[in-house]
């Protein structure tokens, strides 16, 4: 392992401890989303549609970070800051994960739903597309796209278990589903890092890091990484972080891959920065304050 990189990562890595995850914090997913055994049916179901990521709509739609970190103009007019915009997206990502667990869908469905959610807000404003309606509808649409349809009325039933004051009804979800299809420009196939992960971990011979890497990938959806980088690069970054944490030397393996290590390290840094920035759960008041800006008159 490159010494410089070790030093770069070390201080942050020390502050990161998967085992002490709490419910609301960035590691909260670990509790809910155990890694399935690698050869399970669930993994078999993860076969990708188009064999070739490089010809996929997912690849063609990848954005630059600067294109993602833009507060939609309508929301900006209402005083929403970039930090608040990101915070709402994190909050709703957690919400989609929790709803997904309630609905008992595979992690892949949750990941696709979050990707839809984040894609929508690169094109639409939260003022016009209420995140509280968009988030569950994304899960509903993703469940169809990933061949594990959850009925809309069940989605609503589970929303009400989490979120008693949910103001929308079935009709709102079905109408939003159509609006989402338009907003997504009818591109529904999403690639995820999970599949690459198991292959890569087998190749590097670190199957024992599967759980840790899987958890890191889950948490990567709290950022917009999936809109910016090819999924296998995100998987590589998670393997990189895990190997540094567990002090496994993967230098030679990464060299053989001929991947751009700068990109891998950049993604790793982003993930570690994220853990640093959101060590404490976001207080509800801050979320509510941001959301209430959206419903205010300009």
């Amino acid at each position: 392992m490159n010494l410089q990189v070790m030093q770069l990562l070390k201080p942050k890595a020390d502050t990161f401890d998967v085992s002490t995850s709490d419910d609301e914090g960035p590691q909260g997913d670990l509790k809910y989303l155990p890694c399935p055994p690698l050869n399970s049916e669930a993994c078999n179901c993860e076969r990708e549609m188009a064999a070739n990521f490089w010809t996929s709509s997912h690849f063609k739609q990848l954005l630059e970070p600067e294109e993602v970190d833009v507060v939609p103009s309508l929301d900006k007019e209402k005083g929403l800051t970039l930090e608040e915009f990101k915070m709402i997206k994190i909050h709703m990502t957690n919400y989609i994960s929790r709803l997904g667990q309630q609905c008992k869908v595979r992690q892949r469905v949750v990941a696709t739903a979050i990707t839809y959610f984040r894609r929508v807000y690169t094109r639409k404003s939260m003022t016009e597309y209420d995140p509280l309606l968009v988030a569950p509808t994304c899960l509903y649409l993703a469940s169809k796209a990933e061949e594990s349809t959850v009925q809309a009325r069940h989605v609503i039933f589970y929303i009400k278990k989490i979120h008693k004051k949910f103001v929308y009804d079935l009709k709102d979800i079905l109408e939003m589903e159509m609006k989402l299809l338009e907003a997504l420009n009818y591109y529904l196939v999403v690639y995820h890092p999970y599949r690459a992960l198991s292959q890569l971990l087998q190749d590097v011979g670190m199957a024992d890091l599967t759980f840790l890497c899987w958890s890191l990938i889950n948490d990567s959806y709290k950022m917009d990484l999936i809109l910016i980088y090819p999924p296998y690069m995100i998987a590589l970054a998670c393997i990189y972080i895990a190997s540094v944490l567990k002090e496994k030397d993967t230098t030679a393996w990464f060299e053989e891959l001929h991947v751009d290590m700068n990109v891998v390290k950049n993604i790793s840094m982003e993930i570690l920065d994220f853990y640093d920035a959101y060590r404490q759960p976001i207080p509800d008041e801050r979320i509510n304050a941001a959301l209430s800006k959206l419903s205010s008159k300009p």
């Binding site: 549609m49 169809k144 061949e147 349809t149 009925q151 079935l170 159509m178 529904l188 196939v189």
Partner: peptide
């Protein structure tokens, strides 16, 4: 049955948009 866009339509759209 109050279940929005049929999964069949979703499947056909998602596939045809990729190929």
């Amino acid at each position: 049955d109050g279940d929005g866009v049929s999964p069949t339509a979703i499947r056909e759209i998602m596939l045809l948009r990729e190929i």
